[in-house]
């Protein structure tokens, strides 16, 4: 691996705790708050935020999962079919303050898709955005309300978030985009 570590497991944990406080502070409490993680790594992050808020506020916030596959505007550019992982929002979004949770904020297109998907489920009072890493290079007028870490990157780099729940290990690294030939070899 040719990666450069930008967040250790401890730093991820602290960022989650800090964001959990920020979310409650911004809302002046937990009334009407719900967390919705974007598949895949946004979902365990949303659960961790709910756990942290549960610890310091004594309130268990509802957590949902959002799959944005059908809402992407760049599907036609993706060579292989994404496996749809499913949307599970078992609560009413109307009048709720939804905190969207994702691992990395980059172009903003995922978030645009996620907002499109969300409003199909109801009319939230407000939608906010919490991300573990903001790596810049926005292509849409979208910004995060809560950021774990701002990381300047180049477009030739990949921000790789690994979470225990999905990857069996924990950490955030910056890696160089593999040369195209090498990637083709892996995927082909």
């Amino acid at each position: 691996m040719n990666g450069r570590r930008i967040m250790t497991p401890d730093e991820i944990r602290r960022a989650v705790v800090r964001i959990s406080h920020e979310i409650v502070e911004k809302q002046a409490g937990t009334d009407g708050l719900v967390l919705v993680g974007i598949q895949r790594r946004g979902v365990p992050l949303a659960r961790r935020l709910a756990d942290a808020i549960g610890e310091h506020e004594g309130v268990r916030l509802p957590v949902g999962a959002l799959d944005i596959t059908f809402y992407r505007d760049d599907l036609s550019l993706v060579a292989q079919q994404p496996l749809v992982k499913g949307t599970d929002i078992p609560f009413d979004l109307n009048a709720a303050t939804v905190v969207l949770v994702d691992d990395v904020l980059y172009t903003g297109r995922t978030i645009r898709s996620a907002m499109d998907a969300l409003v199909d489920f109801g009319r939230p009072e407000a939608i906010r955005l919490a991300v573990l890493v903001d790596r810049g290079h926005r292509e849409l007028p979208i910004r995060a309300d809560h950021v774990g870490k701002n990381v300047p990157t180049s477009r030739e780099e990949i921000v790789k978030v690994r979470l225990e729940e999905i990857d069996g290990e924990e950490g955030v690294d910056i890696e160089r985009l593999a040369p195209v030939a090498g990637v083709a070899g892996v995927a082909g």
């Binding site: 993706v78 079919q81 921000v159 790789k160 978030v161 593999a178």
Partner: peptide, 26 residues
Amino acid sequence: PSQAVEPASGQSDSGGAGRAAERPTW
């Protein structure tokens, strides 16, 4: 025709790496 090349950067918000396994080929 083979389309095995991973999408260039800028298409997935997390940068795309490691997602190949999550994208079964049709």
